[in-house]
Structure formats: structure tokens, C-alpha cells
């Protein structure tokens, strides 16, 4: 079925140079059941109002750029089909728990700093020359962290996390899950460095395990699970400190 009437998109608008408060603007777009919300926003920008500002890139759930609130739910707009909302109107807002730069675009600086803080890369005590070949890893070792490596940094989990909404400094689901991903990587030797950050007050102990980060994650990363596993790991290190004070964290 091709076009079947219209659908209304109610879009959050905020232009810092002219607006002191946000407002909502309604647009009617052609309804096509093959369209996703992102298609409709692009149609608005191309045909009705070029000033509507939003982020997007790949259109296939890989880049993580087009995350927005769709009828109050954090969604990748490239994966939110209009047919799931039609004939009702669709309300599109920028992700909650982030400052709004303009219209549907949120400021990512804080999130990027948090990601950076957990050192989401392999840390080695001794770095082999590439001529010595790759660091080998078995499928069983890969299975320990593979799920957590699927994160696309779309930030939907931050929009779903009430702790992020209350504690601006809270490291948050994606950053903690990525930290845990590298801690569980058999090729990595940076756990003690990473744990310094992950064990701080605003990190994993701030998580109250509401669990909605895992519900909204489009890549089934399960950041809530990663954080609880990291807590168990942190507690083990703590008790190891009593038993083997010198060996702890190594």
C-alpha cells in the first residue's frame, strides 16, 4: 500500500537565538506505511520547513545518530515506523536528560566525556609489534563481552535512565557497559585503571537497577546487566583487597 492520507507530526522546536522556551509545531506529511519517523522528518525539512534541525546519518540502525523521543519513548527514528502510530499524531522531541542545542538536536559533550573517562579501548602493559601477529582470543572468551560491544552510542539508554536525569555527573549506562566490555576482554590489561573511574561515587554504585536502559536499547546490549556484573566484579576486588592486599586488582 502506498500513500494513504496524511499523518501529523508534532515537533519540538527550540532556536536559541529567538526562543527562550521551546514550542511545538505541527506538520502534516503524507502517510506511507513503509516510512519511518525519520523519513517523515526529512520530508518536512525538504518540503515544508527547512529550519527543522535534526541529526541523522545511516538510516539503518547502525550510526546511532537519530535517537529522539517518539511519543515519549526513546527511539531510533530510523526504526520507528509510522504505521505503528497512524492514524494518531506522532510527537517528536529531543532525547530527555540532555541539554537541547536546537530543535531535535541535543548536546553530546557530557556523554562523550563520560565515554572517554572509562577508557573504552584495549589497554596493554606491553604492546606487541604488529609483526608478532594479533592477540589471540577464543570464541568462548569473545562470548563474555560480545553483547556489550554492540553499543552504537545512540544515547537512548541515557534518556531512559532516571538516575541520569537526577545526577548530571552519573557516568550512565552506555559508558559503564563499555567499560565493562573492555574489562571482560581477555586481551585487555587495563581493568585496574578503568575501575578507578567505574568505582567512583558517580559511577556504577549510582545505578539503582531500574533496568529501563536495557529495555530501550535497540542493539540488545543490556547495559543494566553489564553494570550489575561490574558491581559484582568491583565487590570481588574489594574483598580480595582484604585477603590478598598486594594482589588486588591485578
Amino acid at each position: 500500500m502506498a500513500n494513504n492520507g496524511k499523518i501529523t507530526l508534532e515537533i519540538f522546536r527550540y532556536h536559541p537565538e529567538t526562543d527562550s522556551e521551546p514550542r511545538y509545531q505541527s506538520y502534516e506529511v503524507p502517510y506511507n506505511e513503509d516510512w519511518v519517523v525519520l523519513d517523515a522528518i526529512n520530508w518536512i525539512k525538504d518540503h515544508i520547513d527547512g529550519t527543522v534541525t535534526h541529526r541523522w546519518s545511516c538510516r539503518m540502525g547502525v550510526c546511532g545518530s537519530c535517537g529522539m523521543m517518539v511519543n515519549g519513548e526513546p527511539k531510533l527514528t530510523c526504526a520507528a515506523f509510522l504505521k505503528d502510530y497512524h492514524p494518531r499524531a506522532v510527537k517528536v522531541e529531543p532525547l530527555v536528560n540532555f541539554p537541547v542545542e536546537r530543535d531535535l538536536v541535543v548536546a553530546m559533550d557530557g556523554f562523550m566525556d563520560k565515554l572517554d573517562a572509562v577508557k573504552p579501548y584495549i589497554i596493554r602493559d606491553d604492546v606487541n609489534d604488529t609483526s608478532e601477529g594479533e592477540y589471540r582470543q577464543s570464541p568462548a572468551e569473545l562470548a563474555r563481552y560480545k553483547q556489550f560491544s554492540m553499543c552504537i552510542n545512540c544515547m537512548l539508554c541515557y534518556a531512559a535512565c532516571p538516575v541520569v536525569g537526577h545526577e548530571e555527573e552519573f557516568l550512565g549506562p552506555a559508558a559503564l557497559a563499555l567499560g565493562h566490555r573492555y574489562n571482560k576482554d581477555s586481551r585487555d590489561e587495563g581493568q585496574s585503571e578503568r575501575m578507578e573511574v567505574m568505582l567512583s561515587d558517580e559511577a556504577m554504585w549510582g545505578c539503582t537497577f531500574v533496568g529501563e536502559c536495557s529495555v530501550v536499547c535497540p542493539k540488545h546490549v543490556d547495559p543494566a546487566g553489564a553494570i550489575q556484573q561490574a558491581k559484582a566484579m568491583g565487590a570481588q576486588e574489594y574483598f580480595k583487597g582484604f585477603v590478598m592486599p598486594r594482589g588486588a586488582g591485578e
Binding site: P16, G165, V210
Partner: peptide, 21 residues
């Protein structure tokens, strides 16, 4: 010039998962 949304004191009413928590 960034817009910061007001604090949502009734956040726990916003999603069934929050209510379950």
C-alpha cells in the same frame, strides 16, 4: 543558549518500568 528541561519530580509515573521499580 542550550535549553535545559525542568526537573521531572513525577518521573516514576512516566513508564511502567519505573513504576515496577
Amino acid at each position: 543558549g542550550q535549553y535545559h528541561r525542568p526537573h521531572r519530580w513525577a518521573w516514576w509515573t512516566e513508564r511502567p518500568g519505573y513504576m515496577r521499580f
